[in-house]
Design a binder for these strands. Structure first.
Length: 581
RNA sequence: GUCCUCGUAGUUCAACGGAUAGAACAAGGGAUUCCUAAUCCCUAGAUGUAGGUUCGAUUCCUGCCGAGGACACCA
């Protein structure tokens, strides 16, 4: 990666100049403004104090040092300094052309690397609660998780995607009670989640009339946990049916998991977790329950066993971390879970530290903001305001269909349907993934289903456009019988806009690495949007096929490499591309 | 009371402590005898507030104001 290369060059230059002086951390970054080179470093400014010299002088010295070394001439066409001490690097045409060849050679592997080789990353995402519909809130965890999965995978990590479904706990007592009294198997088979939700809602209504139901439900939960045959049978059935519905959505979204280890999977390990913690005096009794005190961390206690003897999701989470560390050999665990649970994870991580679990495993809560209703408040499930995921997908696809109909009426109906599906889904995913995950998303139909501007369809359109351009070019080739094996001459790419595109292309691997380091997929979205934007600008102002033959050839290859990069980027976001739209 | 996230243009969002704070949508103007106009170009428009750290702060720290959320026996 070029930024790392430059960092090393600077380090070497400093070593030559100042011997063993330790230089503070400095950055090599992409300058925001045009005309400041392709990379810039603040090294002279951050080390001015330490060296007791004027930053401009230091910058000058480093620049001169770099200038004297022949091999660097290949990389840079210019190294300049600017007030108050920046060093700006301009990448040479040769290097840009080499990178272009690399894109064309590596194709769908362009941007990939081996930096994660041998390292296991467990990513915990989606995790719906059985018997509850997946709504727009689950979308974030599912989509962000899947994208991180793709990104780490592309960087050579061994990634394990785990869907930690909520298939255990007190809600099952209620559900089992409701099923026994009002359940209808036929209806559930037809519409699993919908019917289960009805049972759940009915239970809550009946409770208001008869408080005893709470006690009955608790009893059912207890019997389930004691492995009562009938309750286990109902429980298994409810899970199986729920998963049917979830899997439909996952299939549509193109989301996959390596494991679906729900909370119930860890049930047998819970007593050991608690006993172990008690023996080691990390956990204590408190008001009849068992807790891990976290005063040391300035946090309230972590409750791991209830007064009635039942375990909680807290206990499960400890067992899960232990399992992932010991059995899955995770070097890194990412919990893609909403920001609302930040406190829970703080306490969980503190508890794990006390227990000595995941000592050598990096654990991180990948939190994300909420999807807010149109009034800026949390979507309330009770008021029925929630937008269900399947409805959202349906609506988006319908709108996309209308747009295809309007833009491209000549296509066959089959093609239109395919395009509508991919465009509709892409728009939904991009709406989420193009935004920094920490900020709340204000839910807005118009924006979510916008097919213009900074959106997935814009990127898909750019890709499709290049594709048809290349096809047209290939046909022309056949007609003119030009030798297709002639090497393109990339030296002909001399226009500013062409260079801008080449400069952007060289940064793709860095964009992916940044996205992985910060666990922020939107950095990739940002990157490909910029690339597509540069390309569309170029496209609209410069003839490609219709230019002189050799120039046309070079421009076609440039276009191809843009298409490759856009596709690779969209793939990482889990968004499909189209040859035609 | 403790903790988490956020406060940037009319709206929705960017900006790893860097240089002239970027886009998109909406508004106004323009581009199609030419490779897909789901496109491109131009115009106008913003860092809640008061301090601190720094050569440099939208970014880090503190106070205040504002929005949303979580706070043991649900997950």
């Amino acid at each position: 990666m070029l930024n790392k290369e430059i960092k090393e060059i600077i380090n070497k230059a400093i070593k030559d100049l100042y011997q063993d002086i330790e230089i503070p951390n400095f950055v090599v970054e992409w300058p925001k403004q045009k005309g400041r080179g392709d990379y810039a470093s603040n090294v002279a400014m951050v080390s001015a104090g330490k060296l007791n010299q004027n930053p401009m002088e230091i910058a000058e010295k480093i620049r001169n040092k770099i200038d004297t070394i022949a091999e660097y001439k290949e990389i840079f066409s210019g190294v300049t300094i600017a007030n108050p001490g920046f060093i700006n690097f301009e990448i040479s045409d040769k290097r840009l052309r080499q990178n272009l060849c690399k894109v064309l050679r590596k194709k769908d592997r362009f941007g990939s690397s081996e930096i994660g080789k041998e390292k296991v990353v467990v990513i915990d995402y989606s995790a719906p609660n059985i018997a509850k519909p997946m709504h727009i809130g689950h979308l974030r965890s599912t989509i962000i998780g899947q994208s991180l999965y793709n990104i780490y995978n592309f960087l050579g990590y061994k990634v394990i995607g785990d869907n930690h479904i909520g298939d255990w706990g007190t809600q099952f007592g209620k559900l089992i009670y409701a099923y026994k009294h009002w359940g209808n198997k036929k209806e559930i088979d037809k519409n699993p989640i919908e019917e289960m939700t009805k049972l759940y809602v009915r239970f809550h209504k009946e409770v208001e009339k008869n408080k005893d139901l709470e006690e009955f439900a608790r009893h059912e939960t207890k019997r389930l946990q004691e492995k009562n045959t009938e309750n286990i049978k109902i429980w298994k059935y409810l899970i199986k049916e729920s998963l049917k519905d979830y899997n439909k959505i996952y299939k549509t979204l193109g989301v996959k998991f390596d494991y679906v280890l729900g909370e119930s999977f860890y049930d047998g390990m819970l007593s050991r977790v608690v006993n172990d913690a008690l023996e080691r005096k990390i956990a204590t009794k408190s008001e009849g329950a068992i807790v891990i005190a976290l005063d040391k961390y300035n946090l309230s206690a972590f409750l791991i066993k209830k007064t009635d003897g039942a375990y909680l999701y807290t206990t499960t989470d400890i067992a899960t971390a232990k399992y992932r560390e010991e059995k899955l050999r995770a070097k890194k665990i990412l919990y893609v879970v909403a920001n609302e649970q930040a406190l829970h994870f703080q306490k969980l991580f503190a508890s794990l530290e006390l227990l000595g679990i995941c000592r050598n495993t990096q654990i991180e809560h990948i939190k994300f903001g909420m999807v807010l209703g149109e009034e800026g408040k949390k979507f309330s499930t009770r008021k029925g305001e929630t937008v269900k995921l399947d409805e959202l997908i349906k609506k988006s696809t319908e709108i996309a269909k209308k747009v295809v109909e309007e833009k491209n009426p000549k296509l066959s109906n089959k093609e239109k349907k395919k395009i509508a599906k991919i465009v509709g889904l892409g728009a939904i995913k991009y709406n989420d993934l193009s935004q920094n995950r920490l900020t709340d998303i204000a839910f807005n139909w118009d924006k979510m289903l916008s097919f213009e501007g900074n959106s997935a369809p814009y990127l898909q359109y750019t890709y499709a456009r290049i594709n048809s351009l290349v096809e047209k070019y290939n046909r022309a080739y056949r007609l003119n019988r030009i030798n297709i094996l002639d090497k393109p001459d990339f030296g002909l790419l001399k226009e500013d806009m062409e260079k801008d595109i080449l400069r952007q292309l060289i940064k793709f691997p860095e964009a992916i690495e940044n996205a992985a380091r910060e666990n922020l997929p939107h950095l990739i979205a940002l990157y490909i949007y910029e690339l597509a934007s540069l390309y569309n600008n170029f496209y609209s102002s410069t003839p490609i096929i219709k230019s002189e033959m050799q120039v046309a050839k070079a421009r076609i290859y440039l276009s191809k490499s843009v298409a490759i990069t856009i596709k690779n980027g969209l793939d990482l976001l889990g968004i499909d591309t189209l040859k035609k739209m």
